[in-house]
């Protein structure tokens, strides 16, 4: 324990963090999207997680513990000296589900990044955010500058609620990613104002 008792930070007070989640299947462009708007090159952190392995589906068997490493890419945007936005890219596979509680606690909302050729990769994320009632937008990544499928077809296949925006984006393009973030923030704002009005 330090003898000096000052709890004041060295410089200005540390900024308060808020976060947005980017979810989607492997290789869909999450890290690229984060990097397009982040003020720092995307960083990767790893969490060694102990999780219950076999035996869940077969109660008679001995349950084993296994350790899995979860990698998470993220970037940040300084809003002002007292507010900082973190954007977390998270793997969407089922086996990472146990990390999503920590990810979504206190999150503003989420972008579900979709490759329209492999839309089923986004289903775990959609199910989770719907269950959590977390605001989200579906952003269909335009690989090589065009969409292989019509957005209406993608919406029909994803079966999301009518009020969930389904938009095209380009994870490599700063302007397109900014627009995607703004669409999400607009959904979040509308919901916040509706709540405030209902009070």
């Amino acid at each position: 324990m330090l003898s000096t008792h000052s709890e004041q930070p060295v410089s200005a007070p540390a900024p308060v963090p808020v976060k947005i989640i980017v979810a989607g299947g492997f290789g869909v462009g999450k890290t690229t999207l984060v990097g397009a708007v982040s003020e720092i090159p995307p960083l990767t952190t790893e969490a060694a997680m102990t999780t219950l392995g076999a035996g869940i589906d077969n109660p008679g068997e001995v349950t084993t513990k296994t350790t899995t490493t979860v990698a998470m890419d993220f970037g940040r945007i300084t809003v002002d000296e007292s507010l900082r936005l973190y954007i977390f890219g998270t793997p969407g596979q089922d086996r990472f589900g146990f990390m999503w509680n920590e990810l979504t606690t206190g999150a503003l909302g989420a972008i579900v990044l979709v490759d329209s050729r492999r839309i089923e990769d986004s289903f775990p994320a959609l199910d989770f955010f719907e269950n959590r009632d977390l605001p989200f937008v579906v952003a269909v990544n335009q690989f090589s500058g065009h969409l292989p499928h019509d957005l209406g077809d993608v919406r029909a296949a994803l079966d999301v609620d009518p009020y969930v925006p389904v938009i095209a984006t380009d994870a490599r393009d700063r302007g397109a990613v900014k627009e995607t973030l703004l669409v999400l923030l607009d959904v979040v704002l509308q919901r916040a104002m509706a709540r405030a009005g209902a009070r």
């Binding site: 330090l2 930070p9 060295v10 410089s11 540390a14 976060k19």
Partner: peptide
Amino acid sequence: LSGFETVYSLTPGGAAG
């Protein structure tokens, strides 16, 4: 691991110590 976005900064006492 919740709160992993919590921001930490060095205190003057921490800098001295």
